[in-house]
C-alpha cells in the first residue's frame, strides 16, 4: 500500500498543512480567546493572543443581561424537536422505499429532494402570513414545524441510503425464523439501522441548530434560538467584542463537537448519497 516516503518531504508537507489548518481555524480560535478577555483588552492594540488576564466574567454577564440560557434552550428544543419529529415521519417512509421499491419509488425520492431545492424565500410570505394567523410566530412549535419540513427530505434520503445497505436476505431470514412484521422491525431492522439513524440524527441536529433563515424571520424575543439571539449583537450601539465572543463560543461549541464526530455522515447527507 503506502510507499516509503522520505521523512524530509513529509515534514515539509506536515508544516504546510498545519499552517493552512491553523489559518482556517484561526477566526474560531481568536473568538474563543477573546471571550476570556476584558472588553478593554478585546479591542487593545496591539492585540494580545495568550498573555492577557484570563477572565470568565463575559460568560456570566452574557447570561445576566440577556437570558442566554433561554435562547440556548430554544435552540436545543427546536433542533432536537424537529429532528426527532422528522425521524418519526421519515423512518417508515424510508423503510417502505428501501425494502419495497416500486416503479415510482425513484420518482418519489427525487421529488422529495426537489422540495429541498426550493428557495425558502419563495414561500416566505405565505408561511409568514399563515404562521401569523395561526399564532405560530415566535413560538418554538412553529419553528419545530418549519425545520422538520425543510430537513425532512434530507432525513428520508439519508435513512433510505442506510436502509439500502441492509441486505434483504437478513429480513427474509427473520421471516423464515417465524418473525412477523413487528418482530422483524423490532429485533432485526432497528438494531441494524441504529448507527445510520444515529448519524442522521446528529447531522440533522447540526443543520437545524445553524439554520438561519426561518429562525431569523419567524422569531422575535420569546422563541429566538441562538442564531437569532447572536444576530441581535449586530446592532451598532455598542461593540462588546468580548461578550459577543463569549456568546458565540457557547453557541458554536456544542455543534463543533457534534460536527467533528459526524464528518463522514456530513458528506453523505449533504450530497444525498452522490458522493460516498
Amino acid at each position: 500500500m503506502a510507499r516509503a516516503v522520505n521523512n524530509k518531504r513529509r515534514a515539509v508537507v506536515t508544516l504546510i498543512a498545519w499552517a493552512v489548518g491553523i489559518a482556517i481555524f484561526f477566526p474560531i480560535l481568536y473568538t474563543v480567546l477573546t471571550s476570556f478577555k476584558t472588553e478593554a483588552e478585546a479591542v487593545a492594540s496591539p492585540p494580545s493572543f495568550l498573555f492577557f488576564d484570563w477572565t470568565l466574567e463575559n460568560y456570566a454577564e452574557v447570561q445576566e443581561r440577556s437570558n442566554y440560557f433561554l435562547h440556548f434552550l430554544n435552540s436545543v428544543v427546536i433542533s432536537l424537536g424537529s429532528t426527532v419529529l422528522g425521524l418519526i415521519i421519515a423512518v417508515p417512509a424510508a423503510w417502505s422505499m428501501a425494502f419495497f421499491p416500486k416503479k415510482r419509488t425513484k420518482d418519489i425520492l427525487m421529488w422529495m429532494l426537489s422540495t429541498k431545492m426550493l428557495p425558502p424565500v419563495g414561500v416566505l410570505v405565505p408561511i409568514y402570513l399563515l404562521f401569523r394567523d395561526a399564532s405560530l410566530l415566535d413560538t418554538r412549535t412553529g419553528l419545530v414545524i418549519v425545520l422538520t419540513m425543510i430537513n425532512l427530505p434530507i432525513i428520508v434520503w439519508m435513512i433510505f441510503t442506510y436502509f439500502k445497505e441492509i441486505p434483504g436476505e437478513i429480513l427474509e431470514a427473520a421471516r423464515m425464523d417465524g418473525a412477523n412484521l413487528w418482530d422483524e422491525v423490532v429485533y432485526v431492522l432497528t438494531p441494524m439501522a441504529i448507527p445510520g439513524i444515529a448519524s442522521t440524527l446528529l447531522l440533522n441536529i447540526i443543520l437545524a441548530w445553524n439554520e438561519a433563515f426561518w429562525t431569523l424571520n419567524l422569531t422575535a424575543a420569546k422563541a429566538a434560538p441562538l442564531t437569532a439571539f447572536i444576530a441581535s449583537y449586530s446592532s451598532p450601539e455598542g461593540l462588546f467584542y468580548a461578550k459577543l465572543s463569549a456568546a458565540s463560543t457557547m453557541a458554536i461549541a456544542p455543534i463543533l463537537i457534534l460536527g467533528w464526530f459526524s464528518q463522514k455522515q456530513l458528506v453523505r447527507g449533504l450530497t444525498f448519497g452522490a458522493v460516498k
Binding site: P167, E169, I170, E172, A173, A174, M176, D177, Y187, V188, P191, M192
Partner: peptide, 14 residues
C-alpha cells in the same frame, strides 16, 4: 420451514 441463505443472512448485531 427453515432456510439457509447464500449470504448466510446472520443477524450481525446478535
Amino acid at each position: 420451514l427453515a432456510m439457509v441463505f447464500q449470504s448466510y443472512a446472520l443477524y450481525p448485531h446478535m
